[in-house]
């Protein structure tokens, strides 16, 4: 498998008035495989959002290198190529709309790149179909639900034909229905179109079927593995102020009471199976 994005010894410091430089990221290195679905979690202030902004050159590392398909984000000649390939969707659905009609909003990106009109129309069609919003092409985004707005924002990113989508807490402000809509769309894009997804979130349920979960703490990578590897590290997770799904809380409590339950359980199905096994014994 080839690497989509690689971070090599990346540190990032914000300039502050009082204390000089404050490091938000410290010596972070990892590679993200093309086509993978990666979740990034961490409590507020752990460096997640800074990380997101480094992935397409919105921020440039203070120390170290970020490479996107081999291009270095500090190279000004290729930065637009990087931004085209790495689309971003942010937290607040209301802050990302640039036009009052859906199709204009989605066409904004390719128009700015000077894409041919016929091609723009094709891309808008495809992008809307990919997020299941084809019926809304002439509507205004302002009266839509949060989930619909975020799908429009994703379509806006798709119109640039990106290879990577970075979602920076894009589900945080949505209700459960909106979250399910957005996650459904993103999973499909990952599976059917092979788009690499980096999903930053506080909702642990959204990380359960990811290929990989990266836990950030204090500006560094604290844990990095599959969901079952990560959620099995109970005591460490507590230290990083991460809370796994409620099912893992329950498994942890039952195991501590001395019952034969695996602490790393994180899905309902596994919990049901373990309880069945435990309580079927006579």
């Amino acid at each position: 498998m080839s690497t989509a994005i690689g971070l090599y010894g990346v540190s990032f410091a914000y300039d502050t008035e009082e204390e000089g430089q404050a490091y938000a990221l410290k010596d972070v290195s990892f590679e993200i495989e093309k086509g993978s679905f990666v979740a990034v979690v961490g409590h507020n202030g752990s460096g997640k959002s800074t990380l997101a902004r480094l992935l397409n050159g919105l921020l440039i590392p203070t120390v170290g290198r970020v490479k996107v398909f081999g291009y270095d984000t500090c190279d000004e000649d290729t930065i637009y190529e990087i931004r085209r390939r790495v689309g971003m969707v942010f937290q607040n659905p209301d802050n990302q709309m640039v036009a009052s009609v859906v199709e204009d909003d989605i066409a904004f990106g390719p128009e700015n790149l000077g894409v041919e009109r016929e091609e723009i129309i094709r891309r808008v069609d495809n992008a809307l179909a990919s997020v299941g919003m084809s019926d809304y092409r002439k509507s205004t985004p302002f009266r839509m639900s949060g989930g619909q707005k975020q799908r429009i924002a994703i379509a806006g990113a798709l119109a640039l034909c990106p290879e990577v989508l970075v979602l920076d807490e894009s589900t945080a402000m949505l209700d459960p229905k909106g979250r399910a809509e957005v996650m459904g769309v993103v999973r499909r894009l990952n599976r059917e179109q092979g788009i690499t997804v980096i999903h930053i979130t506080h909702y642990m349920e959204e990380t359960l079927d990811c290929d990989r979960v990266i836990v950030m703490d204090g500006g560094s990578v604290a844990l990095d593995g599959t969901p079952s590897e990560v959620f099995g590290r109970g005591e460490e997770l507590k230290r990083y102020k991460i809370s796994p799904p409620y099912v893992t809380w329950l498994a942890d409590a039952l195991a501590r009471a001395g019952l034969d339950i695996d602490r790393a359980i994180y899905t309902r199905e596994e919990m049901e199976e373990s309880l069945c096994r435990l309580l079927s014994k006579d």
Partner: peptide, 10 residues
């Protein structure tokens, strides 16, 4: 608790 991390929610 909307928009908070799990620890903040708690």
């Amino acid at each position: 608790t909307a928009g908070l991390d799990p620890y903040g929610k708690e």
